[in-house]
Design a protein around this nucleic acid. Structure first.
Length: 430
RNA sequence: GCCCAGGUAGUGUAGCGGCCUAUCAUGCGGGCCUGUCACGCCCGCGACACGGAUUCGAAUUCCGUCCUGGGCGCCA
């Protein structure tokens, strides 16, 4: 069996490796190949006069990015990358790669994002891009471990739904036999129903679909949402959970992804410190007014320019709390003493919003009232509202954008870099 | 959806009315080269998004279409 390239050391005597031909250098009497697998790169050196002529014939036919299996002696040599190289005894071309390549995997010549996404499988072969997705995988793993260690139950909610969750965003309609259906914009209603089911602590990591025609570097039409809901908890409880989770994710990535971080030229991943600062919505719009000289009327959402100005002032992760009830969804619990404000919060990175959450309304009558006040019909949410009449505990939760978490952590400029196959206003393939 | 900037070999670019039979790099094909590591050297291959207009002449100006990047809006 072949061994991972990373495991081939100067002490290894004999190795079989399998991978892609990263580079070929023909010096006349000496032939160098760099063979790449997901763990690293190994140099294969063939002195033309010394290797078996049959092996040499095969070697001469190999094009870059072909898939090969090579067996040979490992030689410790300082002149080679990693202090070791392989002298081939047996070479097999498992699949010859066509030329020219769709883009330059070695990155001597850059490729535009659009070109890269068209040939995403090949783009991902670049060690830098592989590193992004190794880190993303570690982020997801760390979240699972963190939440399971705190006794959360993992759930899976339907992605084909009959109605909008909360209004606001546009939905993708789909044909569901003889009925109209939509792709789910959020697991919100389902995770809340699991509170009525008695699960107490649930989480889901899954796709959400938004049919907004936005065209920015931080929006996707299909994104990955990390959703959490907790019974007998309020907004403060789940904010603490969220900041602890962020710190845990950064810590695990820092501990377990040092090579990937190095590949991305991130020398030290700075782990945020808890507690994250909390500022009220009023504070936020005051900061924005001072820095941008433009007033946000109370009750308006915070636009991109204001968001950036506030982020610049804060300079680290922070929460915006005490939002006006009018701009948050109907399921956000109003403050008892000042119902124009609610127990909703947004988790912000200086660059953008990462998560939003709230203590939820668990009182049936209040929920009906709030749904009506948003201009929605309670009749359309019957399946969701019924549990509130039969023992719904108080609860709170949040939704965190996985792509935004990854992109802000490793400083990607475009959210499309943080997902394998982005879906945006114009891209549906691959 | 609005605004701005773009679309030139496989990839990334230069050229912005005649010096264009279109630059350079990388790549690809061929040749030389026994320690490369962005190997080097020689020869060759390969492109003006599409449609219309202006002009003696258009890659270059204008109009339309399609596509891309960025900013904003919407949204998370």
């Amino acid at each position: 069996m072949h061994m991972p390239i990373k495991k081939v050391t100067p002490e290894t005597e004999y190795a079989e490796i399998a991978g892609w031909v990263h580079e070929v250098r023909d010096l006349g009497g000496l032939l160098f190949f760099l063979i790449r697998d997901r763990t690293g790169i190994l140099q294969v050196t063939a002195p033309k006069k010394k290797v078996n002529p049959a092996v040499l014939d095969v070697l001469k036919r190999i094009s870059r990015e072909s898939v090969v299996r090579i067996r040979g002696r490992v030689i410790a040599i300082d002149k080679a990358p990693g202090g070791r190289e392989l002298v081939p005894d047996e070479v097999e071309i498992l699949n010859q790669c066509e030329t020219p390549l769709l883009l330059d995997v070695v990155e001597k010549v850059p490729a535009e994002l659009d070109t890269r996404l068209d040939a995403r499988f090949m783009d991902i072969r670049k060690p830098r891009i592989t590193s992004v997705f190794l880190i993303r995988s570690e982020v997801i793993k760390a979240i699972h471990q963190f939440l399971f260690s705190r006794d959360f139950i993992h759930i899976t909610s339907p992605k084909i739904v009959a109605a909008a969750t909360e209004g606001g965003t546009e939905l993708f309609p789909i044909a569901y036999f003889e009925k109209e259906a939509f792709l789910s914009q959020s697991p919100q209603l389902y995770k809340q129903m699991m509170m009525a089911a008695g699960f107490e602590k649930v989480f889901e990591i899954g796709p959400i679909f938004r049919a907004e025609e936005h065209n920015t570097t931080k929006h996707l039409n299909e994104a990955t949402s990390i959703d959490v809901e907790v019974s007998f908890a309020d907004h403060e409880d789940v904010m603490r959970l969220l900041e602890d989770l962020i710190v845990e994710v950064y810590t695990q990535v820092s501990n377990r992804c040092s090579e990937a971080l190095e590949t991305l030229s991130i020398n030290e991943l700075i782990i945020p410190r808890t507690p994250f600062p909390r500022i009220t919505y009023q504070n936020a719009i005051d900061i924005a007014a001072r820095k941008t000289k433009e007033n946000i009327p109370f009750g308006d959402d915070i636009g991109t320019t204001a968001e950036k100005a506030i982020g610049e002032e804060m300079g680290e992760h922070y929460f915006i709390i005490d939002w006006p009830t009018v701009i948050k969804p109907y399921y956000a619990m109003p403050h008892l003493d000042s119902p124009e404000l609610c127990r909703a919060f947004d988790l912000m990175h200086p660059r953008m919003e990462l998560a939003s959450g709230a203590q939820r309304v668990h009182i049936h009558e209040l929920l009906i009232e709030q749904i009506r006040s948003k201009g929605l019909q309670p009749e359309n949410f019957e399946f969701y509202l019924t549990p509130f009449r039969y023992g719904m505990p108080p609860h709170a939760g949040w939704g965190l954008g996985a792509e935004r978490l990854v992109m802000t952590m490793i400083d990607l400029t475009n959210i499309r870099e943080a997902i394998l196959f982005p879906r945006d206003r114009h891209r549906l393939v691959p």
